[in-house]
């Protein structure tokens, strides 16, 4: 059932979006939509077609942290699982993301196994 989850991948680099989309497909998640920053992600989230958000941090327009905060502040979306997939590696940034309510944090460059583990952990699936 969880394989029918609808993922939204937000990253300003189209190569990274393709990579994540392909990895998600490999993991059996076929339903993946993309957006290139928080601003273009927001209408997709608002439309209610997303079950799981994977977002970069460093993006023009609306950065990932702001998108996360906006998601948590919206009653409809507040409980949405959010995985941050980013090159941002400062301890204070990771703490800030945790305080903003992120469910998982994967640092780039990453491996397919790490991505799977974090998604499974967030979904409460035994890996």
């Amino acid at each position: 059932m969880s394989k029918n989850l609808r993922f939204l991948v937000v990253d300003d680099f189209s190569t990274m979006r393709r990579i994540v989309k392909n990895l998600l497909n490999d993991l059996g998640y076929a339903n993946v939509v993309e957006a290139d920053d928080g601003n273009s992600a927001w209408p997709l989230l608002q439309a209610g077609n997303v079950d799981f958000l994977v977002t970069d941090w460093n993006m023009p327009g609306m950065p990932g942290l702001e998108l996360l905060k906006q998601v948590r502040a919206d009653p409809k979306l507040a409980k949405m699982p959010v995985l941050m997939l980013t090159a941002e590696a400062k301890r204070e940034q990771i703490i800030e993301a945790a305080q903003a309510g992120v469910n998982g944090y994967v640092i780039k460059p990453f491996t397919a196994i790490t991505l799977k583990e974090k998604i499974d952990k967030i979904l409460g699936v035994a890996s």
Partner: peptide
């Protein structure tokens, strides 16, 4: 900073990073 700082670069000292 709010937008993000980008990847860590070996040899460039910044605030503590993982």
């Amino acid at each position: 900073t709010r937008r993000g700082l980008g990847p860590q670069i070996p040899g460039i000292k910044t605030s503590p990073a993982v």
